[in-house]
Simulated scan of single mutants.
Amino acid sequence: MTTVAERSAGDSPPLGLRATLDRLATAQKGSAGAPLYSRFVNRPLGRVFAALAFGAGLSPNAVTAVSAVFTATGVAMLALVPPSVPMGLAVAACLALGYGLDAADGQLARLRGGGSPAGEWLDHMVDAAKVVGLHLAVAIGLYRFTDVDPAVLLVPLGFCFVDVVIFFAMMLNEALRAQHGAATRAQGPTQQVGIARSVLALPTDYGVLALSFAFFGATSVFVPVYAALGLAEGLFLALALVKWFREMDRLPR
């Protein structure tokens, strides 16, 4: 006879959605440093997606693939479809759903007893493609379909640079912590942080960036909002680099 534990590692479980959500609530990463949208919207949304995927018997890699499809659809529309209000709303919806599913694959892996190196690799590769592709698609879309000043195209290119450096730094930080025996983010404590810190980090939240594309049909509105988010991300990087260097300097030699 198949036990519940055996089923949770592969087959669809005999658990209802509510029971699965309750189990997922105990398999969450800490919220330290998490921006407002990621903390209170995206992670709960990802929890629902993970519970639905668990009930359907989907693997974490399958959820990652679905996330990639939604994100790639939104990115492709930015580069290939002339801006309009419906198009902007569709892009924002695709990116937000892709982000929610991106939160779901890790939660699903933890619920099933842990992920695999291949699954982690796939998740990070999709994230890397998203980081680069999104901003390049913005530059392409603005160039093809709008009459913005050519200097405006430097905004998505600069945003791309900042996001790539942040992504690389975060991956490198985790690798060095693991290499030198320090706790990684996944192994760290699950302490909660004050709401004020989450609010302050809101402009750097990918979820906010995803929702900003709802204004893509109105270039005069979208460009200032997008540029402000890019500036906030740049300021975050400047401050974070100092903090991260100090953390790396304290690692055991």
Rank of each mutant, 00 (worst) to 15 (best):
G55Q: 14
T184G: 01
L45K: 11
L24C: 00
A186S: 04
A51V: 04
L211E: 04
T64C: 12
L136P: 10
V208P: 10
G33N: 11
A27P: 12
T3W: 12
L153K: 13
A76S: 08
E174F: 05
F168I: 05
V199F: 15
G115A: 02
L17N: 09
S116N: 14
L15S: 13
L58W: 13
P14Y: 11
F145Q: 03
F215Q: 13
A178F: 02
F216I: 13
D205K: 08
L134T: 12
A51N: 06
Q192R: 13
C160W: 11
A5K: 06
F236C: 05
I166L: 11
V199G: 07
G113K: 06
A128M: 03
V48D: 07
P82D: 05
S67Y: 00
G158F: 05
F245V: 09
L101T: 05
R253G: 15
G30W: 04
A228Y: 07
P224A: 07
A27Q: 13
E247D: 08
D11V: 14
G98T: 07
L24F: 00
A210E: 10
A210I: 08
R177H: 04
A68D: 00
F159M: 13
P35A: 01
A186F: 01
T190H: 14
V69Y: 00
S67K: 01
R43W: 07
G106H: 06
L202T: 14
L78C: 06
V91M: 12
P224C: 05
L134Q: 11
R253D: 14
D127M: 02
G158A: 09
N42G: 13
A129D: 04
V242I: 15
